[in-house]
Design a protein around this nucleic acid. Structure first.
Lengths: 200, 200
DNA sequence: TTACATAGGTACTGACCGGTAACACCTATG
DNA sequence: CATAGGTGTTACCGGTCAGTACCTATGTAA
């Protein structure tokens, strides 16, 4: 069984402090190869530093993983804020922006599913520090969509929100194990059809 | 980072030959703890045998994984056959049987997602023997549903099939990282709503 | 100058990994 | 009884894993 990652990707050593370099590299490697498949040594090396420095910034690999997921959750949050600012008072447009982004994502060749969901698959131990992050994020995501569906004055907002949420979640998993040509476009058609079906 | 599994689960040593015992134990451990988290030694031990015997039946851990997934795919196939026999000439009832099974599954406490999809998350190497199994299965599954939607004389069968397929796929991933109380029932409502929306 | 914090480097620990060699055993068939 | 094939046992291989001890270099602020 092959494991580990020998990808030497010395990152821009520029002014960026080690902690940020480590996080950036870890995010890339964890996502592409899986969390359990990537060793801390490989991360440190790819970040142009060493294991000791990594352990000065993160208490353990598990904590590094949790921080990696926390960063992603934050990034998703700021995406929502961006869409809210771009379409103020127009929840339906915000939903569409989300749908569009996911569709693009899913069709991009580098799609490997939702990093948070993948982490949940790889780390079933219910006391893992990453699980709190994952559960909080997924619940927040679902609540946000439900709220937007309600604000958009669509019928049965909770049910519609679940439909959309699960549809996109499913698309992201499936993209890893099936052809995804045209999936993005189909995804938008499906999402729009669901929204239309809940028009009052 | 905790790894390995010390769960000692000496399986019924009855007349069952070692190969079958190994496969049964591997299926349980792989699903519950993840593929990379379970070592061959732990599998052999839990199956009441040893590593040598395991390697006499499986060329490598990767092959054991592939065989594990192959068995699951076969089991799913026979489920479809069962439903076809139970509801001959009634594709809609067959779809409903599938929906019902997935809904029950998702709400059961032991749900950890689709084992095939999870394996795709854990094994991104595109030349892994398991990937062929996964891709073949997912494509077959999607084709089957599309065919049933068409046979049920529903509008836009390909699109509806994708909606249902992705919805259930999403539900299974999400069940790992979110509360699932009532998810089964909601799932059926969503599926039925989608089918109804495609009524001609 | 001194003092301190941050970082790099090397080498190590102890445990586990997948996989193999060699040999003893047991049982079924001839 | 003899033989052969499947099985159990133990010990081992080379490699990797997460995590740590210890020492050096550098930069900065007093």
């Amino acid at each position: 069984m092959k494991t580990g990652t020998k990808t030497i990707t010395i990152e821009k050593i520029e002014g960026i402090p080690p902690r940020a370099r480590i996080l950036a590299v870890a995010a890339d490697l964890f996502y592409r190869h899986g969390i359990r498949a990537v060793g801390v040594e490989a991360i440190a090396e790819a970040a142009g530093t060493n294991k000791m420095t990594l352990y000065r910034h993160f208490a353990s690999k598990d904590e590094l993983v949790a921080e990696y997921l926390r960063c992603l959750a934050e990034k998703a949050n700021s995406s929502w804020e961006k869409w809210a600012a771009r379409h103020p008072g127009d929840p339906r447009a915000q939903l569409r922006a989300w749908l569009k982004e996911m569709a693009d994502h899913v069709e991009s060749g580098s799609e490997r599913g939702c990093a948070l969901a993948n982490a949940a698959v790889e780390l079933p131990e219910k006391d893992h520090p990453a699980r709190r992050v994952i559960e909080a994020f997924k619940n927040a995501q679902r609540n946000r969509i439900t709220q937007l569906c309600a604000a958009a004055d669509l019928a049965q907002p909770e049910l519609l929100a679940d439909e959309l949420f699960l549809l996109l979640e499913g698309a992201r998993v499936t993209a890893q194990s099936m052809g995804r040509t045209g999936l993005g476009e189909r995804l938008i058609r499906m999402g729009e059809a669901m929204i239309a079906a809940h028009q009052k």
